[in-house]
Nucleic acid binder design. Structure first.
Lengths: 167, 167
DNA sequence: TTATATGCAAACTGTTTGCACGTAG
DNA sequence: CTACGTGCAAACAGTTTGCATATAA
């Protein structure tokens, strides 16, 4: 045993980095370890605070850069497809909303359409799986690429923010 | 006919405002009308741009204030429970993620836990309902109140951001 | 007339970027 | 030795707030 990984998944992570040409740094290891150890899908700042206890001069920018690099390399997923801005809908009856319903989200242009599916409305979570939560709603979010974005799919545009770039 | 509402739902909206003690202003009417007319769950800025064509000196702050007031009054819903920050997870096998899974979201403290339910994994969208989308994933998001937040439920705290307020 | 809403500008949070320095490979 | 990563600070995007003015009730 040469490298003696502290966690069983650390070896797999290092291999993944090497395969993608990503350097294996102390910060990168610690950031991924914090993410893999957490069961609560932490935000960048929560990761930053956790890792900084071991690496006190870690920068928050490094956390962001690593999360993006690891996401592009497939080692990290983001839970929160629509986090860049709030999205609203009418909640008054007769205006298309008000009753619980489901959404079709375009992962490219971030547009959100309503989705009506009776089978989804009937979904219930069995009490054994709710981990003590008091359940308020079950929402199904179907992610995909909308017709508009499929049409202009000449330039694949894998970026997370296809809309309104400046500078 | 005295008030002659332009849309059938405008009367219901005015009644809803009156019942909640909200003044009926031109801006409020136009903001709600833009929201009710849109099928794409617009952001605050998209609503602002749409309404500004009719009310050219509308302020973006007014749009935000109205969306919050109408949300508190139950006339508007927000689609995007977790929009305030990105949330991440490991995508490597063996670290608890990697395969598609589902989430339990606390609407109070915004924590996100994994949820394993075979019935959810089996969900498919019938092609007739996808409106031309190329479907990539079906995610079930169960919203509720976590045990921690239920415990400290003395102060009901209906605010959208119970964490870290300053000033 | 009075409570509430509006518009502006400034402040704040979360995120991204440019650049000089440092370190893995 | 060289490409890539790090840390800092500054810039950005989205959102919120204080206050003076305007308007609904």
């Amino acid at each position: 045993l040469v490298a003696t990984p502290r966690r069983p998944d650390e070896a797999a992570f290092i291999a993944h980095c090497r395969a993608r040409g990503l350097a294996v740094t102390e910060q990168r290891l610690a950031i991924f370890a914090a993410l893999a150890a957490s069961r609560t899908h932490p935000s960048a700042e929560q990761i930053f605070l956790a890792v900084r206890e071991k690496l006190p001069n870690l920068s928050l920018a490094t956390v962001y850069k690593n999360l993006e690099a690891l996401r592009a390399a497939g080692a990290v997923g983001d839970v929160n497809t629509l986090h860049e801005q709030g999205r609203y809908e009418s909640a008054l009856p007769g205006t298309g909303a008000g009753t619980p319903h489901h959404h079709l989200v375009c992962v490219s242009c971030k547009k959100v359409l309503d989705l009506q599916d009776d089978r989804f409305d009937a979904l219930r979570v069995s009490a054994r799986l709710t981990q003590g939560f008091e359940v308020r709603a079950v929402r199904v979010q179907v992610e995909g690429v909308c017709p508009d974005c499929r049409a202009r799919a000449k330039a694949p545009s894998r970026s997370r923010k296809p809309i309104s770039r400046r500078r």
